[in-house]
Amino acid sequence: MAAISNISLQFPGNLTDAKKDNNVLRLSFCSPRNTTNMSSEKRRFLSVSASYSDSPRKIDTANRVNVNGIHVAEAPLQAGKLANDPSAADEAIVTSLRGRFVEGKFVFRQIFVIRSYEIGPDKTATMETLMNFLQETALNHVTSSGIGGEGFGATREMSLRKLIWVVTRIQVQVQRYNKWGDEIEVDTWVDAAGKNGMRRDWIIRDHYTKEIITRATSTWVIMNRQTRRLSKIPEEVKQELLPFYLNRLAVPTEETDCEKIDKLTDETAQIRILSGLAPRWNDMDANQHVNNVKYIGWILESVPIEVLEHYNMTSMTLEFRRECTQSNLLESMTCPTARVMESNNNSKNRKPDMQYTHLLRLQQDKADVVRARTEWNFKQKHQ
């Protein structure tokens, strides 16, 4: 189902003239997918019944079920129940917005619609948009799991110990970028990464065709919120996470970018440097450091404009080295990679036309903040 802001309510004439039938008002919810010249069988409509009342009715989302031995939010109602239960329509909409558990309750799924302010000049979703979808799904996964605490994606045991999650590395592979109005579904799950880390994976699909559009994998560690020092995962936290671990890889092992990202310096040949990048208040997240997605825009600031115009970024690997706060000024550096990594491009479909190495560093002391590697393919090849 589409997000609520993209659902149109179609009333027969003036709402005030609509007929009440046993206190039930008939509504039609339709998908905002492109309907111009679209055959009728491709248009997806969902008719539901909602109780009519002069005063707003509170949505009840308190029902919970057992998932992997943990109390979590209830799975969505079946479509057939919508017409018989007045509260089913509200609950279905809430479920669409917040996501649900699927596949044996180990995978969390959320549906998004590409909005006009989430696309770039070529009318497709940007890498930053995709990363926002990944982040939102991950946070809602924790919230819906029943183990969420007060922190930004932290569990209850983590909140008690003033611990937060920080990402150390993330890799995103993009097969194609969706257009404005497309509906996608994002699946996410977690697994252990060594003794003191957690791996989170994602897969983005077309909501209707189920075509895989994007794959992503990431590694997370725990930091003390007050001291800003890394910490071992307490045993109590491990026990919270254990019921949700799923041994599955979104990015195949042979395509995982695990090679070290080279450090750029002022002496590196053919380098582009953009200085004076300043984090704004709205760039900070709830953990009081720059939101991970903001780094992508700063990285792309030093990429040649002709590359942005004529090539699609098909892969991005980010390696996070230190925190960045609002008081910091940054420099963005980009340099063409001298060689294309053979080990990461065994698949013919993933061989890039070009590759770049990037660095975000503090302007004052030149300390690394984020290292990155990107792969690009000519846009005409993917149209």
Score class of each variant (00 low, 15 high):
R248T: 01
L249D: 15
E259T: 08
C258V: 15
G297A: 07
V186E: 03
K263T: 13
K210D: 09
D262E: 12
K260N: 08
I233F: 06
T209D: 05
V237P: 03
C258L: 15
L241E: 04
I222M: 14
D201F: 10
A286G: 00
E211A: 14
K195N: 13
I233Q: 00
I296N: 12
I299D: 07
M284K: 11
T265A: 05
R272P: 01
W189I: 03
R248C: 02
G276I: 01
D285T: 05
Y208D: 07
S218N: 03
L274W: 07
N247Y: 13
I222K: 07
T188I: 00
A286K: 10
A250I: 09
L264N: 04
T219S: 05
L241W: 11
L300M: 14
E240N: 12
I271S: 11
W281N: 05
L277T: 04
K263V: 15
N224Y: 03
L274C: 09
T214K: 03
D266V: 11
E236P: 09
D285F: 08
K195Y: 13
E267M: 07
Y295W: 00
G297E: 05
P243R: 11
E254Q: 15
N291H: 13
M223V: 06
M284R: 06
I271P: 02
G276K: 05
D266I: 01
R225Y: 10
N282M: 14
R272L: 10
I296T: 04
I273N: 00
C258Y: 12
D262L: 11
R229Y: 07
N282W: 15
I261L: 12
G194W: 05
F244D: 03
V186I: 11
S275W: 01
A250V: 11
I261W: 13
V290G: 01
K263D: 06
T214V: 15
I213T: 09
E255A: 13
T214Y: 01
Q239G: 01
F244W: 14
Y208R: 12
P234R: 07
I213V: 11
A278H: 12
T253A: 15
A286R: 14
A193D: 02
T253G: 05
A286C: 13
T214W: 01
A278L: 15
L264G: 09
D257S: 14
L277S: 04
P234K: 06
W298I: 10
I296L: 12
T227H: 08
R228V: 03
T256S: 14
M198G: 06
N291M: 09
R199H: 04
D191M: 06
G297V: 09
Y245M: 10
S218F: 00
D285W: 02
F244Y: 12
K238R: 14
E235H: 01
D257Y: 13
T268N: 02
H289S: 10
L230K: 03
D206G: 00
R280V: 07
K263E: 06
D191Y: 02
M223N: 03
P234Y: 09
